Simulated assay, not measured.
Amino acid sequence: MSVTDVRGSGHRSAFPDWDTIHHAMTSPDVIHVVVDIVFDWMSITAAMLILHRLGWWSSPAIVAWVGNRQRALGNLLHDAAHRNLARSCRLNDALARLFIEPALFNSLALYRELHARHHAWLGDPARDPDYIAVRPNPADRWWQPFFKVLLAPAAWLSSTFGHLHLSRLSWMQRFGMVGWWAAVLGAVALVWGVHAAALFFGIWMLARATVFHAITTFRELCDHFGLEQGGIFGYTRDVSSRSLWRRIIHPRNNGYHLTHHLMPSIPYHRLAHAQRELLALPVFAGAARVCHAYFSGADAAVREWEVHGGDNVAA
């Protein structure tokens, strides 16, 4: 089912306040976006300076922080693919291409194309590029499908090297990424020395291969895994939690995935408010799958991986 199907006339009648909610929520706050981008990069810089000062014993915490901020930047790239960073398409794409895209070894154009397929062919094993095809045992605990996806070579390559390993990436796009990294590492070397530049790149890649990959895997399972295929409401969940886990697993409000699929033009910084507005509509509240925890409680997201995980098995 495509996003346009959900926004068609048949579904609009079920949401009497759709237009009011949608138009009030679809205006990106570019200042908010810029502040978030600056925070991510400044905190990564601060983490590297702390590592340089305190030594290698602090490296586990530094890798964990950098991996979490990489996930935050990845979620901003997701919003850029929907043109939700700024009202101007040029500014939206410029922000992504200057501060996010090359750092994550991703092409915004390719990401936008693949993600559009995910929305258009949600849950289709043959056409949804984000479809998770695992074969869990009915007796599996939640961590077993998690590790099956985590240890899949294709998933690890994607997390670690972004689009670099894809043949569809052009040589000009690869050259652009190499040029961006050469400029960044050259600037670091000029200010702090070659050793600092090598250390930064090493920590960056280590974080992508470990913490970023683990968070990304868990987040992707949270989105759709363990739910019934056949429609947005049945196959997508919101994870609305106030715990610290939300900031680790879903920085930048990425856990409001059902709300996002219903209204993909809502910027990330307005998703929580949009979900509250939608929950006031009985038709949404009655059909939406909203988890309020990740690990504990009857409505924890991971519980559904155990009970219905087999529904995600590709034919």
Score class of each variant (00 low, 15 high):
residue 166 L to F: 12
residue 75 N to P: 01
residue 115 H to T: 09
residue 116 A to W: 08
residue 152 A to W: 03
residue 151 L to C: 15
residue 136 P to H: 03
residue 238 D to G: 04
residue 199 L to N: 12
residue 146 F to D: 04
residue 301 A to Y: 05
residue 26 T to L: 02
residue 120 A to S: 07
residue 198 A to E: 12
residue 21 I to M: 13
residue 140 D to G: 01
residue 50 I to H: 02
residue 40 D to C: 14
residue 267 P to F: 06
residue 169 L to D: 08
residue 16 P to Y: 02
residue 165 H to G: 08
residue 178 V to N: 08
residue 155 A to P: 00
residue 285 A to C: 11
residue 91 L to P: 00
residue 39 F to C: 04
residue 274 A to V: 13
residue 14 A to L: 14
residue 138 P to S: 07
residue 292 H to L: 04
residue 255 G to T: 01
residue 204 W to K: 03
residue 130 D to K: 03
residue 19 D to E: 15
residue 14 A to W: 11
residue 258 L to H: 05
residue 161 F to C: 10
residue 93 D to R: 14
residue 42 M to K: 00
residue 155 A to V: 15
residue 267 P to N: 07
residue 11 H to C: 06
residue 14 A to N: 04
residue 181 W to M: 02
residue 142 W to D: 04
residue 303 R to W: 04
residue 221 L to R: 01
residue 51 L to K: 03
residue 209 A to K: 02
residue 182 A to N: 08
residue 210 T to N: 07
residue 203 I to P: 01
residue 294 Y to L: 09
residue 298 A to D: 15
residue 192 W to P: 01
residue 163 H to D: 15
residue 134 V to A: 11
residue 173 Q to N: 11
residue 198 A to H: 09
residue 1 M to N: 01
residue 244 L to K: 03
residue 273 H to L: 13
residue 235 Y to V: 00
residue 286 G to E: 11
residue 162 G to R: 08
residue 167 S to E: 14
residue 152 A to S: 12
residue 294 Y to E: 08
residue 46 A to G: 08
residue 210 T to V: 09
residue 14 A to P: 00
residue 80 A to H: 03
residue 186 G to P: 11
residue 47 A to R: 07
residue 65 W to F: 12
residue 39 F to E: 12
residue 272 A to L: 09
residue 138 P to Y: 04
residue 228 E to A: 14
residue 198 A to K: 10
residue 167 S to K: 14
residue 217 T to A: 10
residue 166 L to W: 12
residue 59 S to Q: 10
residue 81 A to F: 05
residue 60 P to V: 08
residue 228 E to P: 00
residue 310 G to C: 02
residue 300 A to E: 08
residue 42 M to G: 03
residue 86 A to K: 03
residue 296 S to W: 12
residue 232 I to C: 02
residue 229 Q to T: 11
residue 7 R to A: 02
residue 2 S to P: 05
residue 17 D to G: 00
residue 265 S to R: 14
residue 192 W to V: 09
residue 163 H to P: 02
residue 261 H to I: 07
residue 225 F to W: 01
residue 44 I to S: 05
residue 81 A to T: 12
residue 195 H to W: 11
residue 215 I to V: 15
residue 111 Y to T: 12
residue 264 P to V: 04
